[in-house]
């Protein structure tokens, strides 16, 4: 449903950030973007969500060039879940989710009862129905991620891009967010997730795009990509994949010092 072909992007012409990235996101799947800091994951997400215009290459959504969508149209298909942040003003959880209705409403319109009902239903489906009047900034990091997922659901988009949803979260919260993501994917939503936690890709990804300095190092099913050779090349560090009962179970860097 979302295809990128040969994307190039450069903030400065002499230093390109993306050099020929291609990928395909199928319905109901989770695609992981892995790679070192500065390898272009966030830039790629911005190109896919239409925040940045790739200088060459195309992004197609349901077979149509993403550039031919109006911003509001695009936002009805693709939602962006930013990294954990603290807004300048402390809105309630319900207000945060309600903002997902923006692409469905006119510029001068305020949300109606129907929009509130959609926002409440979205909160229900991430398991936070009881949290709706709480101040957003008083939630834990994992709960905030779930609220932003609910905002994507209220936006009624079928594709959600998540920028490092596991950053700053403890294992419990990471698991809570990812289990919810996996369940929504099983219901037919599609996710592109950038991450610095290859173990989560091991557990949840259907496809993995391993990036290095703006290029594709490897792209495919996790069992083919999350290998010692490729990960070692991507992170420029000796990496071990620990197996149990023939299955890869953990990805850990090898200790170098004594």
């Amino acid at each position: 449903m979302l295809e990128a072909e040969n994307l190039h992007y450069a903030y400065k012409p002499e230093k390109p950030t993306l050099r020929g990235i291609s990928l395909t996101l199928r319905q109901g799947t989770i695609l992981y973007l892995l790679g070192r800091n500065g390898c272009g994951k966030t830039t790629l997400m911005s190109c896919l969500s239409g925040l940045l215009r790739p200088q060459s290459g195309t992004v197609r959504l349901h077979g149509r060039d993403l550039r031919s969508y109006t911003p509001a149209e695009r936002a009805r298909h693709i939602g962006l879940i930013p990294q954990l942040h603290t807004p300048a003003f402390n809105y309630s959880v319900r207000e945060m989710v309600l903002m997902g209705r923006a692409p469905h409403l006119g510029l001068l319109a305020a949300p109606s009862r129907g929009d509130y009902a959609i926002a409440d239903a979205a909160l229900e489906s991430v398991g936070l129905a009881d949290y709706r009047e709480r101040p957003y900034t008083q939630l834990s990091g994992g709960e905030r991620q779930l609220v932003l997922i609910a905002r994507g659901l209220a936006q009624e988009c079928r594709i959600l891009l998540m920028d490092e949803p596991d950053a700053h979260l403890d294992l419990n919260n990471q698991q809570r967010v990812m289990e919810r993501v996996a369940r929504l994917a099983a219901d037919g939503l599609s996710f592109i997730i950038s991450s610095h936690v290859p173990n989560n890709a091991l557990m949840y990804a259907h496809r993995v795009l391993l990036m290095k300095r703006g290029t594709t190092l490897a792209y495919g099913a996790p069992e083919h990509i999350l290998t010692e050779t490729l990960l070692t090349a991507a992170y420029e560090l000796p990496i071990e994949v620990i197996r149990a009962e023939e299955q890869p179970r953990a990805i850990v860097p090898r200790k170098v010092s004594g």
């Binding site: 911005s46 925040l51 509001a72 930013p82 207000e95 903002m99 997902g100 923006a102 305020a110």
Partner: peptide
């Protein structure tokens, strides 16, 4: 008339753009 949009603007440009504004 734009009072509700102010909520979204206060989250920053990236999120407002991602929300179709």
């Amino acid at each position: 008339a734009v009072r509700w949009r102010l909520n979204i603007l206060s989250l920053g440009d990236a999120e407002a753009t991602a929300l179709g504004m």
